[in-house]
């Protein structure tokens, strides 16, 4: 499933709530669901700040036996640089890395994106 919202700071609350609903229906514990909400906030903020023009943010959710995967993609926007890497806006990257089991900045076609993964097996 996916949801698309305007790439604006005000949209982050919507993405947080959708993340909570999707993650809440998985075996993830309530602590990890909250962690994921924070990680999604930081990931979305990172993409919005990198954007040089207003586009949209698409959050895609998928599950497998191992865990939950979230892909945040910035669409219809241009960025000066992507991936940013951990040295740019390091606080957001530290938060994302601490609160997930895997995170990467990549390109989804031409769209800058951040992939997040949380495992069901870590408490």
């Amino acid at each position: 499933m996916w949801i698309s919202v305007p790439a604006l700071p005000a949209s982050i609350d919507v993405l947080r709530s959708v993340t909570a609903v999707v993650a809440g229906h998985t075996p993830l514990g309530i602590d990890r669901v909250d962690d994921l909400r924070l990680a999604v906030s930081e990931g979305a903020g990172r993409l919005i700040r990198a954007s040089e023009q207003r586009g949209s943010l698409r959050a895609s959710f998928s599950t497998d036996g191992d865990g939950l995967h979230i892909r945040l993609a910035l669409r219809d926007a241009t960025v000066a640089q992507w991936p940013l890497g951990p040295d740019t806006d390091p606080l957001s990257w530290i938060v994302i890395e601490t609160l997930t089991d895997g995170a990467e900045e990549a390109l989804d076609g031409n769209d800058p994106c951040i992939g997040l993964h949380v495992s069901y097996t870590r408490s």
Binding site: G24, T26, P27, L28, I30, S123
Partner: peptide, 29 residues
């Protein structure tokens, strides 16, 4: 449980639906 409970486990424990528990916790933010 020795770990953080899932929403399904919380819902069972308090006798509410999983969807209501998720919504309530989200609202509690």
């Amino acid at each position: 449980l020795g770990r953080s409970p899932s929403f399904a486990e919380i819902a069972t424990a308090i006798g509410e639906t999983e969807a209501d528990v998720i919504e309530a916790v989200d609202a509690a933010q």
